[in-house]
Design a protein around this nucleic acid. Structure first.
Lengths: 340, 340
DNA sequence: GTTAACCACGCAAGCGTTTGCGTAATTGGC
DNA sequence: GCCAATTACGCAAACGCTTGCGTGGTTAAC
């Protein structure tokens, strides 16, 4: 006894039977194929409309081996930076008739792997991913490569050869940030950086050093501390910086959230913000404009635009606009935004 | 000349050929079917592992007429309230082996329709949607009903009979909010409400009136104004409220963003926040804790939990735990959170 | 020794669509 | 009036997988 799954949705076969023609003719008529007569075309299209026919995408996906779906894997959907990025990705995917499959890793490597696995099984055409901050092992991305599913990394990019990526040039933004502080007279500038293995952390550190070098100042390794981006980690980092002999008067923090946490810590230590200590950070989160003690400046990373760019890159790869081995890395310019 | 789409991915057929057994045996072996001998099971599973076999989900989706995918349609992915909700939805979908297809309407009715259409074509098993604030026409949801695709509405719920929904009891939260203001001595309390057709707006208004009634105060219709949630609309609403003869000393705003905009307007009018005028709002956006002039209190709506609840409801419907005509509406309690 | 039960597997249909190829019938050129 | 091109359509395979049914072979019960 066959289970009837039909759900009433009319199929191409239905139309064919009613019109007494073959399914192939119906299919072609629906696609406006030139080899179908005008009369039959019209009849088919009219009946299709009447029946409320809708192509069964799952059948087409299966048949074509293409899903017009892109998978997007992010650490945390609710973080402002990433949710802006999602927004940019969805917008450009949508206008190119692609849909978006979503997954969040919560910075958990195991979950990251499972999601990638799931996306692979779903046969997404490509992926856009920002890796978790604890991810050390990249074999799941290697599997995607073997399955010939292209992936564009963005923002949090793994340290791997031969990948596509979109990111912001944080080094130049950091130079701008440190320049800004130096011009305001600060000489002992701390930095609360992120986990060491993130490329983004390396870029921040590099920018920091380049700016110092430009001004012929010497670099004190004690001033850069790698934290884990939690409130507790930030507090500890601040504690370290404030314990140094040379008085730290400004701190560059990994992002606006870290900045806010750092501000909280500083306030507890009875420091006056923008007087005893000045903060500069990254992300330029919109809310910081409403904030009591916003960082004096923030490096805008254009998440929405990064999302757009990553999607466009992925789509052009899917369209076969490039050689398979032509790995692209788009680096957007970040920009320091003053909040004074 | 047949195009080779294979992409090298091994199929069930491959395994069958190599082992000289039938595809059905392989399929059953992979599913641990009892009617397959232990020896063959082992051989199949080992070879599958060696080859890196992975089931082709698109084929299964097609064959089973089920996609294990839920569509989620929201006005704006980057809004904090919704991105928390997404997070909750994705988490519970993930732990039930469902995946999530994403779309944002940008509060545009036409786009909302297109996305629903697209999800229908993608044959999602069900949908979770929060409607756009301008949506007046609900025929696209009627189409989903006809296609027997269940949909759970949440937060922004249309005024339709026979729907599933998850929402927060804003009326009680509003009563708490107005009570709070009344106890602080405010007697002329304005309200910047949302678009009239939103159920959420009605609930806020009802709560407002109920609180007044409880305290035997009479209700002045001039004090409630329906705005469009833009900064400009909020400014206009504030202008109206401040122009009234009776001096408004407190305002309940539709959400934290409206509150922030209202605060900005009040500051421009040289009003002192929490002295000349006090704000109470909804959403309890985390950032408002960092904010310069946060609302004195905010009604927490638990977006993450709402997302979880909506997903659980949808999954239980998909599991056939209910009659088809057993429409459920879950109403969660909101809770006033003081920021003092 | 017959029947029944079970075990281990193969056959083949079917899900809805696309598409290469074949085949009539009509048209046009000379 | 013959060949070629064009028009209008049908046939059937293929995509990968699941599953109802059938079929030998072995075992157990009476």
């Amino acid at each position: 006894m066959r289970k009837v799954v039909s759900s009433g949705q009319p199929t191409i076969k239905e139309i064919a039977k009613r019109l007494n023609i073959s399914v192939s003719t119906v299919s072609r008529a629906l696609h406006d194929h030139h080899s179908i007569g005008l009369r039959t075309k019209a009849r088919v299209q009219q009946l299709a409309a009447e029946l409320g026919y809708e192509r069964n995408q799952t059948a087409i996906f299966f048949q074509q081996g293409k899903t017009f779906t892109i998978g997007i894997l992010l650490p945390e959907l609710s973080e402002a930076f990433f949710s802006s990025a999602i927004s940019g990705i969805e917008d450009t995917a949508y206008s190119n008739n692609y849909t978006v499959l979503l997954g969040q890793s919560h910075d958990d490597e195991a979950r990251e792997k499972q999601i990638i696995q799931s996306m692979k099984q779903h046969r997404v055409d490509g992926c856009i991913v920002s890796i978790g901050k604890n991810t050390r092992n990249y074999e799941h991305f290697e599997m995607l490569r073997q399955a010939k599913i292209p992936v564009v990394f963005f923002d949090r990019i793994p340290d791997l050869p031969n990948i596509h990526s979109v990111s912001c040039n944080l080094e130049s933004g950091t130079v701008q940030a440190v320049d800004f502080l130096l011009k305001k007279g600060h000489r002992v500038i701390g930095m609360i950086n992120g986990p060491e293995q993130l490329v983004a952390s390396g870029e921040r550190a590099a920018g920091y050093m380049r700016a110092l070098h430009k001004h012929r100042l010497k670099y004190d390794p004690e001033l850069i501390v790698n934290a884990d981006l939690t409130a507790a980690g930030t507090a500890e980092a601040m504690k370290h910086l404030l314990s140094l002999k040379r008085k730290v008067t400004a701190v560059v923090t990994f992002n606006d959230y870290v900045a806010m946490d750092a501000v909280q810590y500083a306030l507890k230590q009875k420091l006056e913000i923008n007087k005893d200590i000045t903060f500069v950070s990254y992300a330029n989160t919109p809310v910081s404009s409403y904030t009591a003690y916003p960082p004096a400046a923030s490096v805008e990373q254009f998440p929405y635009e990064q999302g757009q760019a990553a999607t466009n890159m992925l789509l052009s790869i899917l369209n076969g606009d490039h050689d398979f081995n032509d790995y692209q890395q788009l680096i957007m310019e970040s920009q320091l935004v003053l909040h004074t």
